[in-house]
C-alpha cells in the first residue's frame, strides 16, 4: 500500500509538469491554431533562467590567496560572490540559496519577450500554412534554441539546487496512519505540485473571470465574429502566446532542481506533452490538465517493480498504450470538441 501511495505521489508530481506544458501548448493551439513544437524549448529556457539567476548571484570578485596553491602550484584564486560582499556572508548566502524561487523575476520578462519575439518574428508567418509546415519550422526552431543554449552553457547537466529549507524529504505517512518513515516524499516535489496547481488555477481564472479572457475565449470559439465586432483579436492572441510561453517557462524554472537543466531538456518533454494534448483533446484546456495528471499517474504506477515483474518494460510504453486506447474509444480525446483539427 505504501508503495502504491508513493507512486501516486510521483504520478501527481509528474502529471503536474505534463499538465503545465500541455496547458501552454493547448493555449497556443486553441488561440492561434499553431502546432508549436518549440514549446519544449520554452520549458528549457525557463529552466536555464534559473541557471542564469544562479550564475548572476554567484558573480564574484577574485582574491589571490598566497597561502594556498592551485592544481598547477600557482597561488590559489578564491572567488568571493558580490552578494556576500554587499549583504554580508549570511544574507548573501541566503540570497544565493533562494536563487531558484528568485529567478521568477527573470523568467516572467524573459519568457514574455521570447514568446512575443517567436510569435511576431516567426510563427505569425505560418498561421495560414498547413500544420505540417508549422511543425517543421517550430521543430527546427527548437533545435536552434537547444544549440544556442549548448553554446552558452555547455552540454553537461547543471546543478540548480532548491533552497536548503525546501530540500530533502518529509514524512507524510504518519499523518495518514502509516508507520514513520514509510511514506516519505520530496519537499520540493510537493512544492512543485502546489505551484503547478496554482498556475493552472490562475490561467483558468484569468480566462474565466477577466474581460480579456472572455474575449480570448470568444475568439477561440469564433475568431471571425469577434473580429467583425471591431476587436483586435490578433493582438490578444499574441499576448496569449506570451502567457503560454510564461507558463512553460515557470514550469521549467521550478523543475530545475528536480532535473538538472541541460540543452536537450525540452525535447525530453516535448513528445510526451503532445501525447497529453492529443489525449486531452486538441484545444481543450481542461482536457490537457486532466490528461496530464492521468498519464503521469499511469506512468508512475506502471513503473512499480511488481508491475514490471509481470510485463517488463511496460513503464516505457504505457503512455502510448493508454493514448491508443483512449483515441480508439474517444477519437477526439478525453474532452475534445467537435470540429477541432477535423477539417
Amino acid at each position: 500500500m505504501d508503495a502504491l501511495i508513493l507512486q501516486l505521489l510521483n504520478g501527481m508530481d509528474k502529471g503536474a509538469a505534463y499538465a503545465l506544458i500541455a496547458l501552454g501548448l493547448t493555449l497556443i493551439f486553441g488561440t492561434l491554431g499553431v502546432v508549436n513544437f518549440a514549446h519544449g524549448a520554452l520549458f528549457m529556457i525557463g529552466a536555464f533562467c534559473a541557471v542564469t539567476m544562479q550564475r548572476i548571484l554567484s558573480l564574484s570578485s577574485t582574491v589571490i590567496d598566497e597561502t594556498q596553491k592551485d592544481f598547477l602550484g600557482n597561488p590559489l584564486k578564491i572567488e568571493v560572490p558580490y552578494v556576500q560582499s554587499w549583504f554580508g556572508d549570511v544574507a548573501g548566502a541566503a540570497i544565493q540559496d533562494w536563487s531558484v524561487p528568485l529567478s521568477i523575476l527573470l523568467v516572467i520578462p524573459v519568457m514574455l519577450f521570447v514568446g512575443w519575439a517567436m510569435e511576431r518574428g516567426l510563427i505569425k508567418h505560418f498561421y495560414k500554412r498547413p500544420h505540417a509546415d508549422q511543425i517543421l519550422v517550430t521543430f527546427g526552431l527548437a533545435i536552434v534554441i537547444g544549440e544556442i543554449i549548448k553554446a552558452f552553457y555547455g552540454a553537461n547537466p547543471i546543478q540548480t539546487p532548491s533552497p536548503a529549507a525546501l530540500t530533502g524529504s518529509v514524512d507524510l505517512g504518519v499523518g495518514l496512519g502509516f508507520e514513520a518513515n514509510t511514506i516519505i516524499y520530496s519537499v520540493w516535489r510537493i512544492v512543485y505540485f502546489f505551484f503547478a496547481a496554482f498556475i493552472i488555477a490562475a490561467v483558468f481564472a484569468f480566462l474565466q473571470f477577466t474581460t480579456f479572457g472572455m474575449v480570448v475565449r470568444a475568439g477561440m470559439a469564433d475568431r471571425e465574429t469577434v473580429g467583425m465586432l471591431g476587436i483586435d483579436i490578433d493582438k490578444r492572441f499574441t499576448v496569449m502566446f506570451g502567457i503560454a510561453a510564461c507558463v512553460a517557462g515557470l514550469a521549467g524554472m521550478m523543475y530545475a532542481p528536480i532535473l538538472s537543466p541541460h540543452y536537450n531538456l525540452g525535447m525530453d518533454f516535448l513528445v510526451l506533452s503532445f501525447v497529453v494534448v492529443v489525449v486531452g483533446g486538441m484545444g481543450s484546456l481542461p482536457g490537457a490538465v486532466l490528461a496530464g495528471f492521468v498519464l503521469g499517474i499511469v506512468q508512475s504506477l506502471s513503473s512499480m517493480n511488481e508491475v514490471k515483474a509481470i510485463i517488463p518494460g511496460i513503464d516505457q510504453i504505457i503512455i502510448y498504450l493508454v493514448a491508443i486506447i483512449i483515441l480508439l474509444t474517444r477519437p477526439r480525446g478525453l474532452m475534445g470538441r467537435k470540429g477541432v483539427m477535423e477539417e
Binding site: 505504501d2 508503495a3 508513493l6 507512486q7 505521489l9 510521483n10 508530481d13 509528474k14 518513515n181 514509510t182 516519505i184 516524499y185 520530496s186 516535489r189 528536480i258 532535473l259 531538456l265 525530453d268 506512468q299 508512475s300 513503473s303 512499480m304 517493480n305 513503464d315
Partner: peptide, 13 residues
C-alpha cells in the same frame, strides 16, 4: 530517464 523518482521511491521501503 531524467526523472528517477519512480525508481527511487521503491528503495525507501
Amino acid at each position: 530517464a531524467g526523472d528517477f523518482a519512480s525508481y527511487l521511491t521503491p528503495v525507501i521501503n
